[in-house]
């Protein structure tokens, strides 16, 4: 059966409008988790274009690689935390814990005076983002009404 794109758009719109405002805000909150991840992980690609940043920490090719990898190592650890923490303390508390961890990590990065502190802050921030980026789709699918609930959680896990 052929489905035209306008029919598809109409369908998505109808689905989105068929939930109450509070529910829509909750789902938007969850998708802010994706923005959070995008900002945190995306910023290094721009920041290493700043000569001041490079000279401040005296970067070379190896330490630049470490800067990129520290974050993803943290991501890995954060995703592993998701195997048990959300089931144990609940989805909402896990998001709150991750936000607090992220504040610690971002604080370390912002105030960093040595490369060690910067990399440690990056790794800690990575743990927080690893938790949020894999938990938010699951959380969103659990609080959304059944007609929009996808296999999002399964896909991201």
């Amino acid at each position: 059966m052929a489905v035209t794109s306008s029919a598809l758009d109409h369908r998505i719109l109808r689905v989105l409008l068929k939930m109450n405002k509070y529910n829509l805000l909750c789902i938007l909150y969850c998708s802010f988790g994706a923005f959070f991840y995008g900002y945190d992980s995306g910023l290094t690609t721009s920041i290493i274009g700043y000569p001041e940043f490079i000279t401040y920490f005296n970067f070379n090719a190896t330490t630049l690689g470490a800067l990129g990898s520290a974050y993803y190592a943290g991501n890995f650890a954060g995703s592993l935390v998701n195997l048990w923490l959300p089931d144990k303390v609940g989805r909402l508390k896990t998001v709150q814990i991750a936000a607090v961890i992220s504040i610690v990590g971002a604080g370390m990065q912002t105030g960093a005076h040595s490369l060690g502190v910067l990399l440690a802050g990056r790794a800690i921030g990575g743990i927080a983002c690893g938790i949020i980026v894999s938990l938010c789709p699951l959380y969103a699918s659990e609080i959304s009404p059944p007609h929009v609930r996808g296999r999002v959680g399964g896909l991201y896990k």
Binding site: V95, Q96, I103, G105, T110
Partner: peptide, 18 residues
């Protein structure tokens, strides 16, 4: 990044548990 995390933490006050 601090702002993003702060928004996430502040918004969680109004969020329901799954």
């Amino acid at each position: 990044q601090l702002l993003c995390a702060a928004i996430m933490l502040a918004g969680s006050i109004w969020m329901p548990e799954s």
